[in-house]
Amino acid sequence: MEWTIGWWQISVQRVYPSNAQLSQTYNQAASWWHQHLQLLGYSHAYRELWRSLKNSNILPQNQDKVSICDCGIGTAAFSLAFAQIINPNAHITGVDISSEMLNKAHQKLSQVNVAHRICQSDLNALPFADHTFDAVICAHTLEHLPNPEQGLREIVRVLRPGAPLILVVTQSGLLGWLIQSYWGNRCFNQEELSKLIHEVGLTQLQFVPFTLGLARFTSIACIGFKR
């Protein structure tokens, strides 16, 4: 945004946290993050989202030991809900920029015997070969990227052809802006997210509403498939 006042031109440009700043912020939050999600109802909302996807038969069927990448795994709340509702035999690869979040994710997944590995990495440069995963799941991570299209293209790269991305982002609105003011993330509306997903080549896009808790007012969930 730019304004001209007399002989002065004033501009305002959005600045996102650096990787180091983001890592430090979430390292500090790791000790209380999982309980925070439970208290605010996100863990339950995640389970209901997976149940809705399961009941609608959107997800690929007849797969047992699928390979799942959770981008921005945090303390593994989204992965735990997936394992509980969809497939307890899945192998989860958890990626996060925060080492402390990864430690918590490892603890939580180990406690319920979910096969997994953890990987500290920037989402913009995933350390995996092309066409590695049967699905990618990603909750409240894309909005932290200065260039979300770049991050999405990297996700698409590691998906196998025909495989789904299940994506959750912070929704534009008053509550979204309050979250944004604290964490420094962006927010999306459905139109913006739809355009972005189509630009990176995902097809069969479907939005799946949250029906419970705070997530109903703060989050958008969708699923798209790699060509």
Rank of each mutant, 00 (worst) to 15 (best):
L80A: 03
L80M: 13
L80C: 07
A81V: 06
Q84N: 04
H91D: 07
H91M: 11
H91A: 10
I92T: 06
T93R: 05
T93N: 05
G94L: 03
V95R: 00
D96C: 09
S99M: 09
S99R: 15
M101Q: 12
M101H: 08
N103R: 14
H106Q: 13
Q107W: 10
Q107H: 13
Q107C: 15
K108W: 12
Q111S: 15
Q111I: 12
V112P: 10
V114P: 01
A115T: 12
R117M: 15
C119P: 12
C119A: 13
D122M: 03
D122K: 10
L123R: 10
L123T: 14
L123Q: 10
L126R: 08
P127I: 10
A129E: 14
A129N: 14
D130S: 15
V136W: 06
C138V: 10
C138A: 12
H140P: 02
E143F: 04
E143C: 07
L145H: 14
N147H: 15
N147K: 14
Q150P: 04
L152C: 14
R153Q: 09
R153C: 14
I155K: 02
I155V: 15
R157L: 13
R157K: 13
L159V: 06
R160M: 14
R160T: 06
P161H: 15
G162M: 11
A163Y: 07
P164G: 08
Q171V: 05
S172R: 12
L174I: 14
L174Y: 09
G176Y: 01
W177F: 07
W177K: 14
W177L: 06
I179V: 02
Q180H: 00
Q180T: 01
W183C: 01
W183F: 08
W183R: 09
G184P: 05
G184F: 06
N185L: 05
N185A: 03
R186Q: 10
F188K: 01
Q190K: 11
Q190M: 06
E191K: 12
E191S: 07
L193H: 03
L193F: 02
K195N: 09
L196D: 02
I197Y: 03
I197P: 00
I197F: 07
H198F: 12
E199G: 00
V200E: 01
G201Q: 07
T203Y: 00
Q206C: 00
F207Y: 10
V208W: 03
F210Y: 05
F210I: 03
G213V: 00
L214T: 01
R216P: 01
R216L: 00
F217E: 01
F217R: 09
